[in-house]
Amino acid sequence: MPMVTLAVLGDGRGELVRSMGRRYSLSDIALHEVDRGYKLTLVDPVGYPDSLKALATALGLADAVLVCVSPTGLNAQSGEQILAASLLGLQGALVYTGLESTSPHVLEQVRERTQKVLAGTSLHNAPWAYVSTTTHEGMGELWELVDALCSAIEERYALLVDEPTRVIVDQAFNVRGVGCVALGVVRAGRVSVRDRLTVYPLGQEVEVRSIQVHDEDVKSAPAGSRVGLALKGIQPNKLERGMVVSSTEELTERPHLECEFVPFTDGVSQGDVVHVFAGLQSAPLRIELIEGEGEAREHVGAGERCTLSGRLTARGPLVYRRGDVALLANLDARGPRMVARARIMG
């Protein structure tokens, strides 16, 4: 089974991830590892809600999500996290975390309210687990659910092994005697020792000197693997989160996006600046053209579909493959900041 990454969302997620795995990295996201006979990484967006980028990063790394539900139910922040996960099409499971202090009647009420929020999302049919993060009651059932979820992810990754190699970089640093090491996730294809690849958007050619997966040396790593790549031909200070080590990618500073806006947003207008979250990339975009039903428009609103074209105002070119799914966010929105699902078409 390949390595699997789950983003842990919702109220009380910190207590849950600490009870499930050992933390090995902390920035605006916390990474916890678990050995279940397969390698599992749990991602907690600890920088959220102050940083929407932390949430987008966690979801950009994730294969699926675990959403924590407290005895008081979902709050507005949990709703925003569920919305973002759903826009990316991520599935997963719901984890009720207050089993030790909840009556069956209250539990059923919380579940009913939660299911109403989940209607129409990618999690509306998600299974439930019921645990106590204090007494650890129910953890065995949760692990059974996680194992089944990861088995389904394995089948999905098996379909991606033959695609061109694509590694999304999370971080990079120098290791004495090794040189530049880039940490990231193999999103497609397979990366092997002595592969010659390109770092996008830099256009810098590199050679893979060695590969580690959870501190073990390997000769190659398939789609789904979280890897450490020792790279020849680049310095770690040149690598940033969101860059892509790949055999082929496209670049654009004026992306063309096919968008579907969420049902509860004020929408956007021509001239507005929104944020694009694509993979682990984040960039502000000034909207120059909105088209809907074959006509130019000045505004697009809640629940509508359109195509947007614009210009990145910072960061540099966006790395993409045609059809990649991204999130559009309005950081000044009064409600949920994630406003649309966008497919990058050019």
Rank of each mutant, 00 (worst) to 15 (best):
Arg341Trp: 01
Ser51Tyr: 06
Ile234Asn: 02
Gly73Asn: 02
Ala329Phe: 04
Arg297Gly: 01
Val262Leu: 14
Ala172Phe: 07
Val208Asp: 07
Ser132Asp: 05
Gly224Val: 03
Met3Ile: 04
Asp272Gln: 06
Arg322Gly: 08
Glu163Val: 00
Gly120Phe: 06
Val178Asp: 08
Gly346Ile: 03
Leu257Cys: 02
Arg36Lys: 07
Asp35Val: 10
Thr134Pro: 11
Val208Thr: 13
Ile29Gly: 00
Val208Met: 13
Ile29Trp: 08
Pro263Asn: 05
Gly60Arg: 10
His256Gln: 12
Arg254Tyr: 11
Gly79His: 04
Leu123Tyr: 12
Leu118Asp: 11
Ala221Asn: 04
Arg22Met: 09
Met20Asp: 00
Val69Ser: 11
Val276His: 00
Gln171Pro: 09
Thr102Phe: 12
Val106Gln: 15
Thr134Tyr: 15
Ser101Cys: 15
Met139His: 15
Arg321Met: 14
Arg113Asn: 07
Ser282Asp: 07
His299Gln: 01
Val186Lys: 01
Val95Tyr: 07
Val4Gln: 12
Leu239Ala: 12
Leu312Asn: 12
Gly138Ser: 02
Gly184Ile: 00
Gln115Gly: 01
Gln109Thr: 14
Ala93Phe: 06
Gly233Val: 13
Leu16Gly: 05
Gly303Ser: 01
Tyr38Leu: 10
Gly14Asp: 14
Arg187Leu: 11
Thr307Phe: 08
Asp11Cys: 14
Glu304Tyr: 04
Tyr200Lys: 03
Arg226Tyr: 05
Tyr157His: 08
Gly346Arg: 10
Gly73Leu: 12
Val274Leu: 08
Arg321Phe: 06
Gly292Gln: 01
Arg194Trp: 03
Val34Glu: 11
Val69Tyr: 11
Glu260Phe: 13
Gly323Arg: 11
Ile153Met: 15
Ala152Ser: 13
Tyr200Thr: 01
Trp143Ala: 13
Val131Met: 00
Glu304His: 13
Val227Gly: 15
Lys116Trp: 14
Ala85Gln: 04
Gly279Asn: 00
Arg321His: 13
Ala129Ser: 08
Ile82Ala: 03
Gln281Ala: 00
Ala58Arg: 00
Ile344Met: 09
Arg22Ala: 08
Ser282Phe: 03
Leu40Glu: 02
Val245Glu: 03
Ala84Asn: 02
Arg334Trp: 02
Leu160Asp: 02
Arg254His: 14
Gly279Ser: 02
Ala223Met: 02
Gly203Lys: 08
Thr198Asn: 01
Pro236Ile: 12
Leu331Asp: 05
Asp266Ala: 09
Arg254Ser: 10
Ser86His: 11
Val319Gln: 11
Gln115Val: 02
Val218Phe: 03
Gly203Ala: 09
Pro2Gly: 00
Leu183Asp: 07
Met139Trp: 14
Ser86Gln: 07
Ser101Gly: 13
Val245Ser: 00
Glu249Arg: 11
Cys259His: 09
Ala30Pro: 08
Tyr96Ser: 00
Ala283Asp: 00
Ser151Asp: 10
Gly120Ser: 07
His275Asn: 03
Leu318Ala: 06
Thr307Asp: 07
Val319Asn: 01
Arg341Ala: 05
Tyr96Arg: 06
Val191Pro: 01
Pro45Tyr: 03
Pro317His: 09
Val4Cys: 10
Arg113Ile: 08
Glu250Thr: 15
Val268Ile: 13
Ala129Leu: 09
Leu16Lys: 10
Arg196Asp: 14
Ser192Val: 10
Asp266Lys: 03
Lys232Met: 12
Glu253Ser: 15
Leu318Glu: 05
His256Asn: 05
Leu328Ile: 01
Leu16Cys: 11
Val34Asn: 03
Asp215Ile: 12
